[in-house]
């Protein structure tokens, strides 16, 4: 199994352990567990605000989150694996959210659904937690106000990728999709315009640098057929460190 080890952030090697006629598959235990976990993310929906409407759309038959094995809600945190924080969390709610998170059994994952859960959104004030990552660790951020169901599924697939690797590292941001209508409101002098300028500058600074984890994952998702099982061992030191950070 020496050759299946990925190095650092590189794209994981794609070794398929064939089954079929042979009737058995060999893999490492943690890979198998990760593979099993990622298709059975029992959810605890912590739904507080308008993002809940999109959450319902995701859970409904049209977008059908059951395809990913993530449809079963458990209204006890002790039975759930994935905490969906859907909507704005106020300072007054923060202890409840913290408590729900603490009651979940390991391994547990958190998905910040929408801008408010990710960073507080435009509720930049005395009452609102500016992102649930101030209180509990977050695995995937899904941007959008509220996010489209497709964006949520992007985020969920990103999370599944992460779960499958057994990696509890830094939170990932589901890749944003360009919205053509937004280009119209990027008028000079607006906050949106300046935000865009800033993003462009920052992007220019990082040009030539190593691609982010999210970019790598996006690439690897595009390259890989869905059925393939990836074998990727943990990157010893870094993942251990980030695991400690995480808890």
């Amino acid at each position: 199994m020496a050759d299946v080890r990925g190095s650092g952030n590189a794209i994981p090697s794609k070794a398929v352990m064939g089954g079929g006629d042979a009737g058995f598959v060999t893999t490492r235990l943690e890979e198998l567990l990760g593979w099993a976990r990622k298709y059975s993310l029992f959810q605890y929906p912590f739904v507080t605000a308008c993002c809940g409407m999109e959450f319902m759309a995701v859970a409904g038959p049209r977008y059908d989150v059951a395809r990913f094995g993530a449809e079963a809600p458990r209204f006890s945190p002790r039975q759930s694996d994935l905490l969906w924080v859907v909507g704005t969390v106020s300072q007054r709610q923060a202890p409840a959210l913290r408590r729900v998170y603490e009651q979940m059994g390991d391994p547990k994952y958190v998905l910040a659904f929408g801008t408010c859960a990710s960073c507080g959104g435009f509720y930049d004030n005395y009452a609102t937690v500016p992102g649930i990552d101030k209180i509990i660790p977050v695995d995937v951020y899904v941007p959008g106000c509220p996010p489209r169901p497709e964006a949520v599924l992007d985020g969920l697939m990103l999370l599944m990728e992460k779960v499958g690797r057994g990696n509890r590292g830094e939170g990932l941001v589901a890749p944003p999709r360009e919205v053509p209508a937004m280009a119209k409101i990027r008028k000079k002098g607006t906050a949106v315009y300046f935000g865009q300028e800033r993003m462009r500058e920052e992007k220019a600074l990082t040009e030539g640098a190593a691609p982010s984890v999210a970019e790598l994952l996006e690439q690897s998702l595009a390259e890989r057929p869905v059925e393939t099982i990836t074998l990727l061992s943990k990157d010893g030191e870094t993942s251990k460190k980030s695991h400690d950070d995480h808890h």
């Binding site: 923060a94 801008t115 960073c119 500016p130 951020y141 941007p143 106000c145 944003p176 906050a191 865009q196």
Partner: peptide
Amino acid sequence: PLVPYREIEGIDKLPPFGPDMGQP
């Protein structure tokens, strides 16, 4: 805050995405 913020590096970072996504 009622719950003290986590003590990890970069906790005061700006939101992880741009104004199109509703950055405050």
